[in-house]
């Protein structure tokens, strides 16, 4: 599988770097601490938020900047002359991002077990699906054809941080006003957080099967759009 070769290259080149791994764990942890300190909230509610944020940030952290980095390093043209399609490149990038997202998610899962919380096994397919969905979203951020990683990071941050606040991580969806509930439905993170809550013994906002279906729907939509947009964007990076 050619996309495996791309994924392996991505992991060695971009993911297996000390700062990337540390940042992947620390950023959600700091957000979690900022939210936790001084508030009396149940532990399973907090850990659910931490798991959601970790998978979300880890899966969207590096995938958006691979394409601009490759354009900047002038490795992209070499890659494009090989007998592979844009779809293969996109799939390879997504595969690497999923691997990283799942790998980093082990940290908060161990933390949950360490605190003595019981985890429903449904969390495993949910993490895999969410890592896939968020990786596709990450690839969408880099569809803007620039070779400046800072520009892509800015676009990425402008979208990622608002999504965190509308996805029921800090305030349960049930407690949001009607307009807040409507907005939260636009975020794929909402559905993943809902599944994580259920897996930690809390009540869900939507039926579990619906969370999975909608998350899968987002994934397919993001993937199709990412392939379409990168077909044009990759050439404009040369």
């Amino acid at each position: 599988m050619k996309c495996l070769a791309i994924a392996k290259k991505d992991i060695v080149m971009y993911y297996l770097k000390g700062p990337v791994v540390i940042f992947g764990i620390l950023l959600p942890l700091f957000l979690f601490l900022a939210f936790w300190i001084g508030r009396n909230l149940p532990l399973n509610f907090l850990i659910a938020g931490l798991i959601s944020m970790t998978v979300f940030f880890a899966s969207t952290s590096v995938s958006p900047v691979i394409a601009p980095w490759e354009g900047q390093m002038r490795t992209l043209e070499r890659l494009l002359t090989c007998p592979i399609s844009t779809t293969t490149i996109v799939f390879g990038d997504i595969l690497a991002s999923i691997t990283f997202g799942i790998g980093i998610s082990i940290v908060p899962l161990l933390l949950a077990l360490g605190f003595g919380l019981m985890l429903n096994p449904v969390i495993i397919p949910a993490i895999i699906l969410a890592a896939f969905c968020f990786s596709c979203l990450g690839l969408l951020f880099s569809a803007y054809p620039t070779n400046l990683p800072s520009t892509i990071m800015m676009i990425s941050s402008l979208i990622r941080f608002p999504l965190i606040f509308i996805s029921g991580i800090f305030i349960p969806i049930q407690e949001l006003p009607a307009w807040g509930k409507t907005i939260s439905m636009l975020s794929p993170l909402t559905y993943f957080t809902d599944i994580v809550r259920v897996s930690l013994g809390m009540s869900s906002f939507l039926p579990l099967y619906l969370d999975f279906i909608i998350l899968a729907g987002f994934s397919i939509g993001f993937l199709a759009l990412a392939i379409k947009l990168h077909e044009h964007a990759l050439l404009r990076r040369l």
């Binding site: 050619k2 495996l4 070769a5 791309i6 392996k8 290259k9 060695v12 080149m13 390093m73 002038r74 490795t75 043209e77 070499r78 890659l79 002359t81 090989c82 007998p83 592979i84």
Partner: peptide
């Protein structure tokens, strides 16, 4: 193809670079 403006991956070894292309073929 040996493109005019192109590089091998700097953080991969020579062996990893050449095997990457072999896999893609």
């Amino acid at each position: 193809v040996l493109p005019e403006v192109s590089n091998a991956y700097p953080d991969l070894t020579a062996w990893q670079n050449i095997m990457l292309i072999a896999s893609l073929y």
